[in-house]
Design a binder for these strands. Structure first.
Length: 306
DNA sequence: AATTCGTGCAACCGCTCCCAC
DNA sequence: TGTGGGAGCGGTTGCACGAAT
């Protein structure tokens, strides 16, 4: 049985000589009969270990030590959404990649995202070309837990709609799963910064589940990586939705850019936590692909519309 | 220069599936 | 039909290495 301690079984890193023996076996017998390698006394390795070594390292045409390309990442992300954690199945769509590669890639990615999303201090998006950050105006959503929340929406007052790329955009309330009072946003139309400050570090279910649900990446705007990351931030990016004309009542002209709001300091939760946004670490930004910010540029041009 | 921390990756473990007998 | 062994798969661990402090 598997649990029994077997004498003379080698474990750990493979030596070049062992690889050679394994390769010779495959040349002779093909990639099968793994357990016979040990029974014949060729190697002191289990059949499983031999198979794993062949599949992950010795097989021809493997892309060993080669980072996942953007296209490969896109494929993994799409197929993971489709198949779930079926790494072997996903790997069949990626020539030269093994299930282990895909699994490792995905788990590092998850770790990175988890770290980003659970950062207890302010998180800031900023353009890579803006290494020095300036104090910015921020939206105030007036997120207050006081009073009776409406049956549908949290008790956040939404900012007014505005025009972006010929579309009327409105901000909609966050999903209930995200406590409105625990987060404050600030956007900067000049630097395209969005700061999310959470009052409490999110636990795993809070940070992962909502970002995986209702994902509707903007497929026409961003690269796959960006789309995937945006999908995980869906509760926030979904706030920007096209507004039906019928929802506009008074016929007043709309601003051509996101409205400016009260200074950061006025954000309820930030105020409560005395968070200084100007001192917030630029911790998130480097984890986002640059094209994400490319798409945010340029600002709607009020005078120079074509 | 030493230490800490984060990350990538190779390999192992436990489980399930499949198939020959 | 039941059973045992091999193969395959997904989860997890541990180590090496580079960057940051």
């Amino acid at each position: 049985m598997e649990g029994k301690k077997e004498e003379g079984i080698r474990k750990g890193p493979w030596k070049a000589e062992e690889d050679e023996v394994l390769l010779n076996h495959v040349k002779k017998c093909g990639p099968r009969d793994w357990s016979s390698i040990r029974s014949k006394g060729l190697l002191q390795r289990t059949g499983k270990s031999c198979r794993l070594r062949w599949v992950n390292k010795l097989r021809p045409n493997l892309k060993n030590g080669c980072k996942f390309s953007v296209e490969e990442e896109r494929v993994v992300i799409e197929l993971q959404a489709q198949f779930g954690n079926k790494w072997a199945r996903i790997a069949t769509y990626l020539p030269g990649r093994t299930d282990n590669d895909v699994k490792n890639f995905w788990s590092s990615r998850q770790k990175r995202l988890a770290r980003i999303l659970q950062t207890p201090t302010a998180i800031t998006f900023s353009s890579k070309s803006h290494k020095t950050r300036r104090e910015v105006s921020a939206p105030k959503f007036n997120c207050s837990s006081e009073g009776e929340p409406s049956s549908q929406a949290p008790s956040c007052s939404s900012p007014p709609p505005y025009i972006r790329n010929s579309e009327i955009i409105k901000m909609v309330p966050l999903p209930d799963i995200v406590k409105p009072e625990s987060i404050c946003f600030k956007t900067n139309p000049v630097q395209h910064e969005l700061t999310i400050t959470d009052k409490d570090p999110w636990n795993e279910s809070q940070s992962v589940i909502p970002f995986l649900q209702n994902s509707q990446p903007q497929t026409d705007l961003f690269s796959s990586e960006t789309q995937e990351l945006l999908a995980r931030f869906d509760p926030y990016f979904d706030m920007l939705v096209p507004l039906d004309a019928s929802e506009l009542g008074n016929g007043e002209p709309l601003p051509m850019e996101p409205p400016l709001f009260e200074p950061v300091g006025s954000c309820v939760s930030c105020e409560r936590e005395q968070i200084d946004h100007t001192m917030a670490p630029d911790c998130l930004f480097d984890d986002f692909p640059t094209d994400m910010f490319d798409q945010l540029d340029p600002l709607p041009n009020i005078s120079g519309q074509h």
